[in-house]
């Protein structure tokens, strides 16, 4: 296992290097600069600003010094917000985004696994069709539609929940979590249904049934562990996706998260901010993929055998 982790971490280095290089080239080749504005900017100002952010140096030199800074863990100053470092802005946005992703994941798991398991227990009956159709709707429903709909019903008409905000009022995290989690709940429902169906047809389940174990015990003790492996494999990328893909939900609910910075940075041509957030999210994706693979290996004896064989 340790060796597996070590190799995976080793692979991450060229991946990150490629991500940084590509992003660096893309942001610098995009038309429009960080300091262009609708009011004409005097050449003296442009010159002063470019000198301040080292944009007057040749591109390769900027690239090398950026790589050096990143190695030291310094993402540089934001162009858009003078006086703020990219690291500081990421640190400011991350807690809200991570918390939102955590609650959304909770919503997704509770709804998704329940629906998937229920459907797998009675395939091709109403108990299967209803949650799976709902899952299909959930996958297709974009958050920019679901969010405002939930706000309209629970925020405006029923007045049960705040329409926006984060940590401002009690309950202001519920609607964002449901909005963001629903799409993932739908995926998880389909994955867990598939996984459970496969496991429930295995010999060891038949043996368990033959031994006279109760169905809930069989599901909880024997089937879930194997049946949820596809879900576990999905969790890593899903969590990374939740962290990086919460822009729409953050905008709808005015959540001070990282997603808004990420997207605004691209519009503002805030080079260091784009690069910083991209590197940050790439690292997260790599780490979460690794974690979910490790979890899958730990849960699945077959895979454990294989990794041991390799090492």
């Amino acid at each position: 296992m340790l060796r597996f982790v070590f190799y995976r971490l080793l692979q991450a280095i060229p991946v990150l290097l490629i991500v940084i290089s590509l992003t660096f080239m893309l942001v610098h080749s995009a038309p429009g600069g960080p300091f262009s504005a609708d009011k004409a900017v005097p050449p003296e100002v442009i010159k002063a600003l470019e000198a301040q952010y080292n944009l007057d140096q040749p591109l390769w030199q900027q690239y090398i010094s950026y790589l050096g800074d990143v190695l030291k863990g310094d993402f540089g100053p934001s162009f858009k917000y003078p006086g703020r470092d990219v690291t500081e802005l990421i640190a400011a946005g991350l807690p809200a985004t991570a918390e939102l992703a955590f609650y959304a994941m909770l919503v997704a798991l509770v709804i998704g696994v329940s629906a998937g398991v229920a459907a797998a227990m009675r395939p091709n009956t109403a108990q299967d069709y209803i949650p799976m159709s709902a899952a299909m709707i959930g996958i297709c429903m974009p958050s920019f539609l679901l969010g405002p709909l939930l706000v309209l019903v629970f925020g405006i008409y029923l007045e049960w929940l705040p329409v926006s905000g984060w940590d401002d009022m009690p309950g202001d995290k519920i609607l964002p979590a449901i909005t963001l989690g629903t799409g993932y709940a739908a995926y998880i429902a389909r994955l867990s249904r598939g996984g459970m169906l496969e496991v429930l047809s295995q010999d060891y389940i038949r043996t368990a049934r033959a031994k006279g174990l109760s169905e809930p015990l069989i599901i909880a003790k024997h089937a879930l562990r194997g049946g949820l492996i596809p879900v576990i494999a999905f969790l890593g990328p899903a969590f990374a996706g939740l962290l990086g893909g919460s822009f729409v939900v953050e905008t709808i609910f005015q959540i001070p998260g990282l997603g808004r910075f990420y997207v605004q940075a691209a519009f503002n041509r805030d080079y260091t901010m784009i690069l910083g957030t991209t590197v940050f999210f790439s690292t997260l994706i790599i780490v979460f993929n690794l974690l979910s693979d490790m979890l899958a290996i730990w849960l699945n004896p077959k895979l454990r055998q294989q990794t041991r064989g390799e090492s």
């Binding site: 925020g155 405006i156 705040p162 329409v163 926006s164 905008t251 709808i252 005015q254």
Partner: peptide
């Protein structure tokens, strides 16, 4: 309040 639609909803909800 970047999103004008959300802003209007906040107004209606007394925020």
């Amino acid at each position: 309040t970047e999103n004008v639609v959300s802003e209007e909803r906040m107004f209606r909800a007394g925020q």
